[in-house]
Amino acid sequence: MRRTMVLLVVFSLLSVWGVAQQTSEKPPEGPQPSADFVQKIIDFGPVAKGEKLNAVFEVRNLGQAPLEITQVRPTCGCTVANFDKTIPPGGTGKINAEVDTTAFLGPISKAIIVFTNDPQMRNATVVVKADVKAFIEALPRSLLRFNVLQGEPATDKVTLVASDGSTFKVLGVDAPEGPYQVKFRELAQEERMANYSGSQWEVVVTVPGDAKEGMLNHKLTVKTDSPKAPEVPLTVSGLVRPIIQVAPAEIAFGSVPNDAPVGRNIVLINNRQGFELKIEKVEVGEPFTTEVVPLQAGQRFQVAVTLPAGTAKGRTLKTTLKITTNDPTRKVIEVPVQATVQ
């Protein structure tokens, strides 16, 4: 009896599931939209590196109800400027996509997924294709790397050649950011790189000695008269290191008690090769005291700053630690010092 009841329940559930499946698969009633893409693949063929490709995909509504484009999702390297969200029956809409080829070289294929309310085509994929060519190449590479010691200028250079052997001229170099000094010239016959015909130009980039400490990460644009490559992008990457590195750059005690001495340390690192750094004098305002500890002769020093016990409470102390060295470029190093005594 119990087995019979179980079988009846199972058969009932299967019947309900079957009806539900039929119901879910039942086509929608009434007028419906119908999406038809005039062209799902737009192939630009060979294009110059750095060129921005504008692709326009047309979508026709062959149905009897408005076609809604609910979402357009581009893949990496492609952006969708705009698209028609509603297309009336018998109408045609557009999806405008853009691909910036600056970061690409060789054949590329960028997909865009289009979501609609067409019951027969909930989503569709359109593709932008191209063969990105550097008609003017920067050799040995378009990336210039620097590891610069502050106060000492550094130079790197590239040679521009035409991959198709054509002639061209460099008109100028835009360097809107960064401290760079840029020069360019056409190479004489005896200076040219072998195995390359056509024009050859040298572009020299210099980081001057007065460049500020910090990271280098900038874009340069070489302007040419070549119709195939009017702009040639270059990237500058690297670091300008201080001659004497101070870490940390300030001494912050924070809130400290007055019943015991409290200390903080900074480290001086000599980045100049072949030079023996010496600390000649260290000064700091009262009530702070200092001590210099050599960590590596001529290269690394620790300067300890101490706030002695018994300092009056309720005071915020601000002063400057002054370190005199034998380095002619950084004779005096100043480090802010601050402490609040509870």
Rank of each mutant, 00 (worst) to 15 (best):
4 T>G: 14
7 L>K: 13
18 G>C: 14
19 V>S: 06
24 S>R: 15
27 P>W: 11
31 P>V: 11
40 K>S: 13
44 F>K: 10
57 F>T: 13
64 Q>I: 02
70 T>D: 05
75 T>W: 04
82 N>Q: 10
82 N>L: 06
95 I>H: 08
99 V>H: 00
102 T>L: 12
109 S>V: 00
113 I>D: 08
113 I>R: 13
118 D>C: 08
120 Q>R: 14
131 D>E: 12
134 A>K: 05
140 P>Q: 12
150 Q>R: 12
154 A>W: 00
158 V>I: 14
159 T>S: 08
161 V>S: 04
163 S>C: 00
169 K>N: 12
172 G>E: 07
178 G>D: 13
178 G>H: 00
192 R>G: 05
194 A>H: 02
197 S>E: 05
206 T>Y: 00
208 P>M: 07
209 G>H: 08
211 A>D: 01
213 E>T: 11
217 N>I: 03
219 K>A: 09
223 K>C: 00
224 T>W: 03
235 T>M: 08
238 G>L: 04
240 V>Y: 06
244 I>E: 10
246 V>N: 08
247 A>E: 14
251 I>Q: 04
253 F>W: 07
253 F>P: 04
256 V>L: 08
258 N>P: 05
260 A>H: 11
277 L>K: 01
277 L>E: 09
292 V>D: 04
293 V>E: 14
295 L>A: 10
304 A>D: 07
332 V>W: 13
335 V>P: 11
336 P>C: 14
